[in-house]
Structure formats: structure tokens, C-alpha cells
Write a protein that binds this DNA or RNA. Structure first.
Length: 722
DNA sequence: GCGGATCAC
DNA sequence: TATGGTGATCCGC
């Protein structure tokens, strides 16, 4: 999905599809509609702040001496040389982006929308628009009332996420044939590593690269008649084979459903993938091919819609491409950064390189390293799957709310929703954050970290309520006039915490064994208060057990069975509407439970008798029975317990799963290992990711941050601009 | 750990 | 009349 963009209030002409209305006219309409509104005033204020930041930066720049600059220049050059040495051109990275995804899905399913300007969204805000509407200046993240002013005939279609998810699933199935470990960014976007595919593809016979177009009548709507009103005329007339890549003969002109043969090179392979996506979904995709993710992402935008662009694996080609590339095109450089850099006279990537020394003196280390990498056309060459989530939140915008009572009610409601979401992923966190936005669009967040992780409505609300109360009391006697409230939970238990809890569970289970049995040497030493049997029994009684009280140790709020269920559900449902929990399908889940589930059903960990039903709920019920009957009932054998321990390990701990070594997960495991920075035997190191969570630079070819810091600790003067 | 900002989608 | 929701990260305290 295209980013909102826009330079403050004005229209962002960054993107394609701006042929219709006069840009000035569009901007005028937007301004007219916005002027005087609280939103507008707030935007002005924000802009002022940025301007001040820039002012400070420029003032500081004046203080920089020639000598400082020379020293900095040296340092930057050294760093650039190091980066250059680590440059990797050996991988073929592809970024795929579906064209106007939501809008395209709606148009596919409702052909009458096809030649009308339309957008997908709510009454208040648009998610995306079709290319027809874009000519009017109607864009993603635009409020609907402005869109209607720009284009009175605009049709606004409400979201239908089920459909988008379904389409996305189909697209991803195609992706996985080229890279089973592709990295989804959102429903409509992904990075793929084509390197392996291309290696294999070299030996493929033509037949394996031949695809027959679907006939027009194959599906309900078909892809309809492209009227070629947009872009480069759609892809109905696939002129695929006239590309350089492969000498295969073109199909006869307009032959009915003539098979299409694709070449063996990167561009042909990507063309083939896009062709298959369109055949499969009647949706078009754009793609970028490049030696790294940063470049691939920029490339996919270049020939949008329904096009692709390739930067060959050649240093000069990369540098040529980078030369005049506007910095704003690079993912991670947003409105504010662009403006700050523009104030320094930098608008293109080559400018970043030329002004490297200056930037190293004006920006934080992380920032100027990032800039330097961009300026050299470097980026990550390894595609890592999503890491574990770090927070979960829910927030809502509403008509002005000033009554404290209502605010507390709403807060509770948000906590309830959030608790439900947390439970779906079986998460507990220690930090609760409340977000408030006033009717003047001023945003405040207030956080509190508690000693034991929370996940239930009551637990979260207990914290959130206090935070909210402080704000209300502080503002008193004035009421808080809110337009938005949100609640977030973060600080999730680490996998180490999970391990320790899982050991605790095991030790609990041991405690229910008859005396005389030697206990497993498994008790968590770092958990001074192992779970009391009562606690587990209480909270583990059933899947509908009420939330646990505060003050308990980690994760005990849910039984193992609840968690197994949660994990299973996780494998089916995504995380959210737009950004899904992608790796759910590949990791863990019920598949790892086959150890016990297998043919006959599940084995009860208490009585060690097989249960017929594989249904977790009834199984859980059985456990309840067993537990109520008391430990005296249990008569397990050591063998079974060991087996069960193993099972617990597998089900409870995804890290353990990965450590289990080769197998379907080995790729993941190796990726994880390499990102740990423990020496990467790979031919290509992942370029140090600027915005990576890893503070240290992953590549051994990089100078240590320490060195840079020691050189000029005061270099980082971002704070002067704030 | 907290809070404000920035960014992506 | 009227400008979203979710998640991540960075920076300076």
C-alpha cells in the first residue's frame, strides 16, 4: 500500500497518477478544506517545531570549523571504504508490491467500478484509491470529506479485509514458489530472495518455464477488457518475451491462450511471477530487482503500476542509479528527515555522499551511518523473517469526550479488547501505556511498568486507570477533552522467561508424581517461587478460566493447554487487519504436537491415559477432572513423564523448536544465528541495518561503534535541534 | 524505563 | 463539521 506522504498539508506528488487535475488546484482545494481546522492548526504547530529544529541545526553548522570538517571527512571516508569492502552484489533481492491493492480487489469483484474513480476506506479516512481517483488528487490516508471535494463522483467502498486477506494468501502462494522464506511486509508487499531460485532455474527445461494464460471465461469476472486507460496499458497484451533475457520466440500475435515461455534470468523470472500472480488473482503487481532490499524497494516503485525495474549486480550500475535518486524515495527517510536534509542542500543520494562529513557532525552515529549506506547504494542482503512482536495496542478515535466517567469506561473497554488480543497470542507484558490525544491533536503517552506481567482486562485496567486518573487529576479542574484514547502493553516476557516458566510447569508436574520417583533435574533455579500447584490448577482449570490475580509469577495465568490452543489459533488467524502475524503458519503450532496427538488422541499429563478426543477443549476438561481428583490419582511412569517433558519443550518454546536442528526450520535457525552476529559464513553478509534492533553493526567489516564514538563523542548533537 | 518524534503501511 | 490504527525505533532524559 502506498504511504500517505504529503509535505505538510500539500499534496504529495511523489507518486504516479497525477495527470488529471492541476496540482495547484488540488492543493488549493485541500488547503481550503483544511484551513482553520484544529487539525490544520496542529499541523502548523508541528511544522514550526521542525523548523526550529532545523534552525538549531543550521546554527550549529555555522560553528563547525574547517578542521573538524576535515577530520570528519577522514572518518567518513574510512567508513565508506569499509562499507565498500563489505559490499555484496551476489544476491538477487526482489521487492513486490501489489498495485493499489485494496482498490484493485474491489474493482476486480465489481467491474462496474472499473472506470470510475473509487477509493477504499471508511467514512472518515481512505486507505487507498484507484489510479483513476488519483488523477483527482485522491490518495491514501486522505480524509474522505476532502476526497469528495476533490472528486465529487468518487465512490468510496468500505473495507473488506477478508477479501484482501484471501487475495493476499493467493499471492503469497505464488511468492513461496520463488522463495519459501519470503518476508511479507503487509498484505500487499513482500521481499523475496530469488538467488536460490535462479540458481536452480538455470537448469530448468523450457516446459517448466511455460505458462498458459487463463482463458477469458475461466472465472466469474475474468480480468475483463483492459481499456488501457492507465499506466502502460495493463498486461493483457503480455509482451513478455520480447525482453532481452531469453531468446525464446514470441507467441503469435493475439493467438488464443498461447502458452508463454519465460527465460531463465532474473527479470524473466520476476516477470513470470507477476504473470502468475495476475493469472491467479486478476491483480497486478509491480516489482523491483536489485542486489539488496533498500534498492529493490525503490525499484518496485519505479515502473508502477504493473511494471518492474532491475538494477543489475554491478557496482557502477548501482552507483548510477543512486546518483540522482531523491532521498525521499528511500524507505526510512520521511517528511521530516527530508526537510532537514534539504535545509543542508541535500536532495539526492549523491548529495548524502558529498556531504557525508557534515552529516557525521550534525546527526547521530546511527543516522549518519544510515545515510552513508544509502549514499553508497548499500542495504540488507538477507531477508529475515519477522521477529517476535514487542508490543500490542489498541486505540480509538471518537467525537470529543470530556466526561471523566466516560473516559474511564472507554479505558476499560480498550483494556478488555486488548486483553482479548493478548490472549489470542498468549502474551503478557510488564509495561502498560496509555495514549491520549486531545481535541487539539496533542498526543501524550503515559507508561508504567509493573513487576509482574499482565494480560487480563482487570490487570491492564488497574494500571491504565491509574495513569488516566493522574492525567485527569493534573488537568483538573479542567476536564480532559479527548479525541483519541489508546492502551498498549509491551515488555513481553522474553523467551528465557518462557523457558523458566516451562521448567516450573515441569517441576509442578513432578510434584504430582507418586513419592519414590526420582525427580527430573529440570527445576528452574532462577525461579525462586515455583508455581504452586494450586495456582496452576486454578488458572488451568479450563479454557474459560477467569483472569488471574496480580502478583503471580510469569505466564501462570494460562494453562499449557490454553497456550497450545492459542498457538493453534495463531497459526490460523493473523495478528491484525492489515499487518498479519505472518510466520504463524510455518512455525510451531499444532504440527509440533503430533508427538502426542498422533493417531489415537492426546495423553493426559496427569493420569497418563490416552484420550480419544483430539479436541483441546474436551481434553482440557478431562484435565480438570483429573486435577480435581487430586494428585493421588496420578500413576505415571518415568518414561511417560520424560516424553511429556519433551512435548512441553516443543510446544511451549519456539526457540527450542528452532534449536532442534535441521529440518524444515533449519533455514530460520541459520538466519537467526547469522543475525546474532556470531560470524557469518555466508558469502554475503547482511549489510548493517540502520534501523535494526541490533545496536551493534552486524557486519564484521564495519568499524566498531566504540571507535567512532571515542573519536568525537560530541558529534551527536541531535539534541541541539530539539 | 519514559515520553516525544519519526516512519511505514 | 470533518484528518486512522498498529507496530517499531531512536533519542535524550
Amino acid at each position: 500500500m502506498e504511504a500517505p506522504g504529503g509535505t505538510w498539508m500539500a499534496l504529495n506528488d511523489n507518486k504516479a497518477g497525477m495527470e488529471g487535475l492541476d496540482k495547484d488546484k488540488i492543493n488549493k482545494i485541500i488547503l481550503e478544506a483544511s484551513k482553520g481546522s484544529r487539525y490544520y492548526e496542529s499541523e502548523l504547530k508541528k511544522e514550526q517545531k521542525v523548523n526550529q529544529r532545523i534552525e538549531k541545526m543550521l546554527q550549529y553548522k555555522e560553528l563547525i570549523t574547517q578542521q573538524q570538517l576535515l577530520r570528519a571527512q577522514e572518518q567518513v571516508e574510512k567508513m565508506a571504504a569499509d562499507l565498500e569492502r563489505g559490499r555484496c552484489l551476489g544476491r538477487v533481492i526482489v521487492h513486490v508490491d501489489m498495485d493499489a491493492f485494496y482498490a484493485a480487489v474491489e474493482m476486480r469483484d465489481r467491474p462496474e467500478l472499473k472506470d470510475r474513480p473509487m477509493a477504499v476506506g471508511s467514512d472518515r479516512m481512505l486507505s487507498t484509491s484507484n489510479y483513476h481517483a488519483r488523477k483527482f488528487g485522491v490518495r491514501a490516508a486522505m480524509p474522505s470529506f476532502i476526497a469528495r471535494k476533490l472528486c465529487p463522483d468518487l465512490v468510496i467502498v468500505p473495507h473488506n479485509f477478508e477479501k484482501y486477506r484471501a487475495a493476499s494468501t493467493e499471492v503469497r502462494e505464488v511468492f513461496s514458489e520463488y522463495d519459501p522464506f519470503f518476508m511479507p511486509v503487509s498484505l500487499d508487499e513482500a521481499y523475496l530472495d530469488f538467488t536460490e531460485h535462479l540458481r536452480e532455474r538455470q537448469g530448468w527445461p523450457e516446459a517448466r518455464r511455460t505458462h498458459t494464460p487463463r482463458t477469458e471465461t475461466a472465472t466469474a469476472e475474468g480480468r475483463g477488457v483492459e481499456e488501457g486507460s492507465q499506466g502502460d496499458g495493463g498486461s493483457a497484451d503480455l509482451s513478455l518475451v520480447l525482453f532481452e533475457d531469453d531468446p525464446v520466440s514470441p507467441p503469435g500475435p493475439q493467438g488464443p491462450a498461447e502458452p508463454v515461455v519465460f527465460g531463465t534470468g532474473a527479470e524473466e523470472a520476476v516477470r513470470e511471477m507477476r504473470f502468475r500472480i495476475e493469472q491467479r488473482t486478476s491483480l497486478t503487481a509491480s516489482a523491483g530487482i536489485a542486489p539488496n532490499m533498500m534498492l529493490a524497494k525503490v525499484c518496485s516503485d519505479k515502473n508502477k503500476p504493473d511494471g518492474q525495474y532491475c538494477i543489475p549486480a554491478d557496482r557502477q550500475a548501482v552507483m548510477d542509479f543512486i546518483q540522482d535518486l531523491p532521498i525521499r524515495k528511500v524507505s526510512g527517510i520521511g517528511k521530516v528527515t527530508e526537510k532537514m536534509l534539504r535545509a543542508l542542500g541535500i536532495t539526492t543520494c549523491s548529495g548524502l555522499l558529498q556531504q557525508g562529513a557534515l552529516l557525521s557532525l550534525l546527526f547521530s552515529e546511527l543516522s549518519w551511518h544510515h545515510f552513508l549506506q544509502i549514499s553508497l547504494g548499500l542495504g540488507s542482503t538477507h531477508i529475515e523473517r519477522d521477529s517476535e512482536r514487542k508490543s500490542m495496542s489498541t486505540e480509538r478515535t471518537f467525537a470529543e469526550m470530556s466526561s471523566a466517567e466516560q473516559q474511564f469506561d472507554l479505558c476499560r473497554e480498550l483494556c478488555r479488547d486488548l486483553a482479548q488480543d493478548l490472549q489470542k497470542e498468549d502474551l503478557k507484558g510488564k509495561t502498560v501505556t496509555v495514549k491520549l490525544k486531545s481535541v487539539n491533536f496533542e498526543v501524550k503517552t503515559r507508561a508504567s511498568t509493573v513487576s509482574s506481567a499482565v494480560s487480563s482486562e482487570e490487570e491492564i485496567y488497574a494500571v491504565a486507570r491509574d495513569l488516566l486518573k493522574i492525567e485527569i487529576d493534573t488537568a483538573s479542574p479542567h476536564p480532559l477533552r479527548l479525541r483519541l484514547m489508546g492502551v498498549r502493553v509491551s515488555g513481553f516476557l522474553s523467551s528465557d522467561d518462557r523457558k523458566s516458566l516451562q521448567k516450573s510447569i515441569v517441576s509442578f508436574l513432578q510434584s504430582s508424581r507418586p513419592p519414590g520417583d526420582t525427580p527430573l533435574p529440570n527445576t528452574a533455579p532462577d525461579n525462586p517461587t515455583p508455581l504452586s500447584g494450586g495456582a496452576v490448577i486454578q488458572t488451568g482449570m479450563s479454557l474459560t478460566a477467569r483472569p488471574s490475580k496480580p502478583g503471580r509469577s510469569a505466564r501462570e495465568g494460562q494453562s499449557f493447554f490454553q497456550r497450545a490452543e492459542a498457538q493453534r489459533l495463531r497459526g490460523q488467524a493473523g495478528r491484525g487487519e492489515e499487518r498479519e502475524g505472518e510466520q504463524g503458519e510455518e512455525r510451531g503450532g499444532v504440527s509440533s504436537c503430533s508427538l502426542q496427538q498422533g493417531q489415537a488422541g492426546l495423553t493426559c499429563p496427569i493420569c497418563f491415559q490416552q484420550q480419544e478426543s483430539a479436541d483441546l477443549r474436551s481434553f482440557n476438561h478431562h484435565i480438570d477432572q483429573c486435577l480435581s481428583a487430586g494428585p493421588a490419582q496420578s500413576h505415571g511412569q518415568g518414561g511417560n513423564l520424560t516424553l511429556f517433558n519433551t512435548h512441553l519443550d516443543m510446544c511451549l518454546n519456539q526457540d527450542v523448536l528452532q534449536e532442534l536442528g535441521p529440518g524444515p526450520l533449519s533455514h530460520n535457525a541459520s538466519v537467526t544465528a547469522s543475525t546474532e552476529g556470531k560470524g557469518t559464513p555466508e558469502p554475503c553478509q547482511s549489510a548493517p541495518k540502520p534501523s535494526s534492533k541490533n545496536k551493534r553493526c552486524g557486519s564484521p567489516t564495519l568499524p566498531s561503534p566504540k571507535k567512532a564514538k571515542g573519536l568525537n563523542p560530541r558529534n551527536t548533537i541531535d539534541r541541539f535541534f530539539r
